[in-house]
Structures are given as C-alpha cells and as structure tokens.
Write a protein that binds this DNA or RNA. Sequence first.
DNA 1: TTGTAAGCGTTATCAA
DNA 2: TTGATAACGCTTACAA
Lengths: 340, 340
Amino acid sequence: MGSGKTGERATIKDVAADAGVSIGTVSRYMNGLNIRKDNRAAVEASIRKLGYRTDQFARYMKTGKSQSIGLIISGYDEFSIGVLSTLSRKLQEKGYALITYHHEGQSDLFDGAINQLLDRNLDALAMSGLECRRNRLQQLLDQGKPVVIFNNEVPGMDIDRVFAKDFEAVRSAVGHLLAMNHRRIGFITGNLQDSTGMNRYNGYRQALKDAGITENDSLVVKGTWNAKAGYFGAKKLLSLNKPPTALFASNYLIAVGMLRALGETGHKIPDDVSVISFDDSPFFSIFRPGITAIAQSAEEMGLNVAALLLDRLSGAYSGAARELCLDCRLILRDSVRVLP
Amino acid sequence: MGSGKTGERATIKDVAADAGVSIGTVSRYMNGLNIRKDNRAAVEASIRKLGYRTDQFARYMKTGKSQSIGLIISGYDEFSIGVLSTLSRKLQEKGYALITYHHEGQSDLFDGAINQLLDRNLDALAMSGLECRRNRLQQLLDQGKPVVIFNNEVPGMDIDRVFAKDFEAVRSAVGHLLAMNHRRIGFITGNLQDSTGMNRYNGYRQALKDAGITENDSLVVKGTWNAKAGYFGAKKLLSLNKPPTALFASNYLIAVGMLRALGETGHKIPDDVSVISFDDSPFFSIFRPGITAIAQSAEEMGLNVAALLLDRLSGAYSGAARELCLDCRLILRDSVRVLP
DNA sequence: TTGTAAGCGTTATCAA
DNA sequence: TTGATAACGCTTACAA
C-alpha cells in the first residue's frame, strides 16, 4: 500500500518532503485553505502516493477538539439500542466517533465510564440519566462540554434533555383499560429510582385517580426492567385472591416475562386477563393475540439527542437548557377485553 | 470542582508545580514507577486537589497506543448487538474504548468507517466480514494492527476469525426435518454474498443430498437478512402449486417476517406447515407454538473475539492466524410436525 | 501564498 | 531517584 517505510504511517512531514513544500502548506491544504495551484497538485499527489491521513489525536493537541462523543446507556436493551443506532448513524455522518459505555445502574461502572470518557477528551456526552452521579456530570459541564440526557431525568442540572411523555402515555393507556370497564388493574413497575419508572407508575396512579378509584397496593409489583420481574410479578398478581382483570407491563422486557408467565399458567389473553405493555415491538404484532402497546420511537429520541448535541457543538445554539418531550402512541391490538 | 482556572483541565505541569517536583516525577508516578515516599505523598495530594487525569491523546503521541478498539458491524440486529454488548463489557473492563461503526452492507459506509477508525489511531479492529473491502483491511494489517473478523468470512486474509458452525447447524436442523418425514422443505436464504448466508444455504443443500433428495429450485427463495424477505418469501413459497410442508428461515428477522405471513394467511404451525429458524430468541419460546430454532451464542462469540484481540494486544500471542468455530444448538420446540 | 518555529501534554533519554 | 529536555504530529501565529 502506498510507499514509505512499511508498517509506518505517513506524517505531514513525509508529505511535505515528498511534495517539496513546507508542512505549513500541507496543513493548510488539509484544512481547506488556499494554496498555490501547482503546490496543490503536488501535495495532492503526495498524499495519494503516501496514503496520508491526518492524525486526529495530534490535531487534537492543538485544537482541543477530539471529534468524539461519549454515550452512556444503562444497558443493551431494545430501546437503548434504538437510540444508540440512530445516534451512531447521525454522528458517523458528521465525522464524530461514538464511544459507548453502559452502567447497568451501578455507580462504579458509571464512574469508570465517565473517567474513561474524560481521559479520551470527548467533545460531548449523551446519556440516559442516572440520578446519583450528578457531580460527575458537573465536572464535564465545568469543562464546557455539552451534555444531553435522555430517557431518564437527572434533576437539577442545567443541561439539555429529551424525554418521552411517560406519564401521559401510561395515564391514557390505563384510562383505556378503565374505559373498557377494568377496575382491578395490575401494574408491574420498572426501577422506581429511574424517572421513567416513577413517571410511568405515576401515570397509572393518576389514571386511577381520574376515575375516582383508590389505589390498591396489592395490585402493584415494584420490579426492575427485566423479564424476570415481569415473570414473577405476573405470577404473583395472578395468584391473588381477587386477581386483576388486566395487567400493565412498564417496559418490553417486563412484558416478555409476563407473557411467558401467562403462557405457563394457561391464562388466555384477553379472555382471562387483558394486557398492555409500554414499548412496542414487532413481536407484539405477530403474537396471537396482538398485544396492545405504547409505542415510543427510539429513533426519534436518538435524532433529537443528536440534534441538540450537534447544535451546541457547532455553536449554532448556546442558550439556556432545552427540554424536549416526545409523544407516545397507544397501539390498539387484541389483548384488551371489554368487560361488561 | 478541584481548583485551578475554571473550565481548564489540569495538566501534568500543574501537578508538578503544585507538588514541587518535576514533570518527570509525576509521569513516573502515573506510570507506576518508584518515586521517593515524600514525593509520592505530595504528588498524590496535588493530583487529588487538581483532579488531574492524564490525557490519553497526549500520551498516545509518545506511545503510539490509543487504547481504543474499532468495531464494525453490519447493522444493529439482535445478533450484532449481542456481540457488541459483550465486547463492550469486556473491553470497558480492560480500559479500552470501543468505537462502533456499521456498514449496512454498503462499501462506502464501510470505507468511511475504516477511514475514521484510521484517523482515530485504533489499536485493533473487530468486524463482521464484508468481502469486498479486503484491501482496506490489508491497510490496517500493514500498520501492524490486530484484526479479528467474526460471523462473516473475508477469504484469503491472514487474520484471526471467529465463526459459528453455520453449515453443520443447518445441515443437522434440516436433517431433523427430513427425519420427521418432510420432503418439500422451503428455504429462505439470507444474503448469499455473506459467507453465513452461503454456508447456511449449503447446509440445507447438503442435508438434502445426505438424504438423496434432489434440490428443487422453486423451494428456495434467495433473500436478504430482513423481515420483509421472510414475509414475501413465505408468501411466495406457500402459494406454490405444491407448497412445502416445512419452512426454514435463515435468521431471526426472516423468521419474524415468515411468522407474520403465516399469521396473515391463516396457516397453522405446525399442522399446516412446520417452521425452523436460525437464531434463537426469547420470543420463540413465548410464541405459541414454540418455534424450533438453532441457537448460536452472541455472547460466546463476543467473548472469543475479545479474547483473540486482547491476546494479540498484550503480546501474549503473536503467531499464525487462529480460527474458532463455535457450536450451535438445535432447540426443539413445537413448530415441527411429524409427517406420516 | 509561503516557510519557520512555538507549543499542545505527554513519555523517555540522559546526566546528575 | 531526580530534573531537564527532546521528541511525537499536528496547527497557527508571525515574518517574509
């Protein structure tokens, strides 16, 4: 490939020497500044010949821009992946590298991620909030790095945010159940430390309140965001003396566990029990019966996170923190029965 | 946070000045070398006070090690995500940053990814093979960077690889269908440009051959790795004059599309048609009937890719290219009917 | 428009 | 064990 010493990468010096110009000229060419026509030709030829690419890290030493963006997600669940994937697409387009970490809700993992990100001079950070690590975020802000949080809130920080309307979506979905005459509605929460978990739960409570129903603690299982929680939560609710007529799963994984439990116990949906899930999935439209679900768009969230980030990075916006709240859609399928 | 000029990051110089030692001493401390006890105490105090962390990019300038690893996947499908997620976990542990790109099978995207990776001085690359871009890989090898390919082959390159036993797995799964007396077995391929696609297809052909059955072209739909291909492929096969009694999907997404089609056309599984899918999913065990599937472990693949990479990076291994072939498991559920 | 040279934050060599 | 200093590959005044 090219020439030069094998296994060594050509530097700006090599190009300058080969083209018979100074390194300043090569640098100016690389940065799109004007250079004399004949020099331009010579430089271009040498670059091609040597396969030269400017070293971004060396460049960073002067400019302070690393052209890389950190992403910290809780884990590799379907929704986070959706955000990761659109973010990656968008940023790859703009020449930014995406460096991904996950924290699994553990603050030591989160700290490790922030540390590594700091060491790598990231230009900006996108993260799904984790309340307890507020001070580490402040550190980034002090260094003037844009930070955008999404999905989960970190209260009291002056930064851009993108959320889904969790509260409203659940409120209206549970309202739908109520309108179908369900009165005993089982609810399996996500992690209530997470604002999404709490907001969805509050949406449930508000819907009951709207309908003048007093909340029954035994119908609420405080869980986590995984299938196990859905599985055991559903079993617990179904074994109640007066079991619920409908079950609400706070996210996709919980719903998966819930459906597994219902399959095992032989409960028919929707005849024996109705089901609604937060998060939609192709699975829910193939499953028989189709599962009524709240769809939030991970892509839309990723796009908005990218836009906020890019806006700050380019200097196009530098005002006060902005907050975006994305709508969700209730997708009606066949998992909810109309009660008399 | 700390002190120093606000918004500025402390450098090794600041620490040296604050601690009253030379930068050499601080550097030695940071790299775990011996320094005098009292100096050590002073340096540690200053580091804490200033919140100093060494700048990895500046460090790279001298060492040539960026402590970052590139990953190029085709897209964000379930399997790739599984690999991404374990790889990320493993590398985060070792202090490496994972920089992720995707190519969607398009060589310009792939080139862009390689370019960005080159610019970012990655130490090593893991990628799901893409045949046509062999020369770009060679470039990395020339620079002495370890490269590991997984899932898809790039023939004729002297690099480490990790594959699943696609051929063997499909051969025995189709063998299972044959043993259940199926003779007309519809097969929807993935992308035949990909070695996984071709190997799975060849596994099917081999199984037929094993049983002395001549392949019937009309029973094979040459598709791509997505749900649409599964959907239309299944519809096409089912509308044949003599439709197949069993359907094989070359990956998860194809199976999803296939199941959607069967749902719409009202074909009952397994009474009207039997089904096997490559790739397992929680979905398949919840779906009724349970779908018989070939499970390959994305985690195992990620772990092995990480191990090969880390081995080379640490210098623990520097011999000839190694090739790993991981076993798959056929998980029997209820989607295959025994024919008379 | 160009070349020269200082400097970014490190590591590594060399004398002390 | 230490401090001083020359790199690493680039950008960016500054002077020509």
